[in-house]
Design a protein around this nucleic acid. Structure first.
Lengths: 228, 228
DNA sequence: AAAAATAAATGATATTTATCATTTTATTAA
DNA sequence: TTAATAAAATGATAAATATCATTTATTTTT
């Protein structure tokens, strides 16, 4: 099993400020997990006893609403950490984490994380920064969901997806999502999402290549997301 | 000017774990503010150089959406702290904080907060817990905004408002909001909010007393918020 | 490769919600 | 205390969005 000290992924996240000794401890205690596409890494309502660090792969964080529909709250990828919110607030996990493709993930026990937070002020601050940043993102999302019509939310989401996952060598947003997942991201019916995507294609703003989406006219999309 | 050590409000928030010396420092450096109803305590996009601690009064945290409409993200009251997210992530303030009634607020300089976070692990953890808890709340709100119809969001909001602000001696939710503010909380048009409130009154589920709302049949409201 | 299952697309229609117009009520200022 | 102003309420209508039904395309399984 590889060592945390050698892991390149940790440079992307709050673990980057850890001392040699702290990394050694994490290495000794961590377990590596392989999550197949479609499988769950965390489940809403469950307790969690450690921090997940995504080595590679892509995932979605979702919430099941009372009517049984899934709402996608956030997308994650290599370098992201999961579970910090629950560990810190001592509350159950609030979101389901599901693999959108096969993932490699490391699991670091809760106590190691809490010890390090206590000892390493910088690590503590880094974790706080991440949660703070996520809170800001979530607040923005609340406002967008509440105020923007579906078409604007779709435009916003497409731009956002490209920012997060980048593009493949054909210029397509580098993630495969079903129409239903897109609908569950913007909070609308699957058929509505399909219709709006078809319209965007007809208008030459996006292209639908295989299972992926390619943004052709980003500035139009940007305008659309702002209601113009 | 009163001392932080004597302040009862601090028992409600992360300041409760501060040492005598830390409280002395806060006392010496803090300034007290009086915010009149309708005035802004923080403004979206601005930098902030300290933490606000609400002594008394009620406020709303809002976001201006691109179409110019205000979205209320959260309500605050005595004991709540404001600005921690921005201080920690070193980002501008993400929300406007506006007084719903006259408020007394203390302001503690950023450096004192950051120093204390470094020195006092428990304080640090308390702040993290607050932000973590707020992130969870925000995620729930995203899901509700995206998935629930307006009527359910209104029911949800009324229950939530009663939980936050409690009831006065007539049993009314102890906060005065305009219909527009209620609409801006649930993310709908003012007229829609008015109509739904009128219906709830007609059905005997709530009562509209002066400028306040009294919940008569909470279990109906609860069911309604869950789509039954 | 065919059959079965799933996902995507499209049309028709119903429902929800927003907008605009107007009236009524309450609040504030002269 | 009366104007003036703002807030709340209500109706009529338009627009946005969901739902249901059906078809077509794509994957998966046998």
């Amino acid at each position: 099993m590889s060592k945390c000290g050698q892991c390149i992924i940790k440079r992307l996240n709050p673990l980057k400020c850890l001392t040699h000794d702290e990394l050694e401890k994490f290495s000794d205690h961590k377990t590596s997990l392989f999550i197949k596409k479609g499988e769950n890494l965390m489940t809403e309502g469950n307790a969690i006893n450690g921090l997940y660090c995504i080595r590679d792969g892509k995932g979605k964080l979702t919430k099941l609403s009372t009517n049984g529909k899934e709402q996608i709250i956030k997308f994650v990828k290599g370098g992201d950490i999961l579970g910090q919110r629950s560990i810190l607030s001592d509350e159950p996990v609030g979101l389901n984490a599901t693999a959108l493709e096969d993932m490699h993930v490391c699991f670091i026990p809760k106590q190691d994380i809490l010890d390090t937070i206590k000892d390493n002020g910088q690590f503590s601050l880094n974790i706080m920064k991440i949660i703070s940043h996520q809170l800001n993102e979530a607040n923005i999302l609340v406002s967008q969901m509440a105020q923007k019509p579906v078409k604007e939310r779709l435009a916003e989401t497409l731009i956002h997806l490209e920012e997060i996952f980048g593009v493949d060598n054909e210029g397509c947003i580098d993630v495969i999502l079903t129409r239903e997942e897109i609908a569950n991201t913007i909070g609308t019916a699957t058929e509505s999402a399909i219709r709006l995507l078809s319209n965007l294609k007809k208008d030459g703003i996006i292209n639908l290549v295989n299972k992926k989406i390619k943004i052709i006219d980003k500035s139009s999309l940007k305008n659309m997301s702002e209601g113009y």
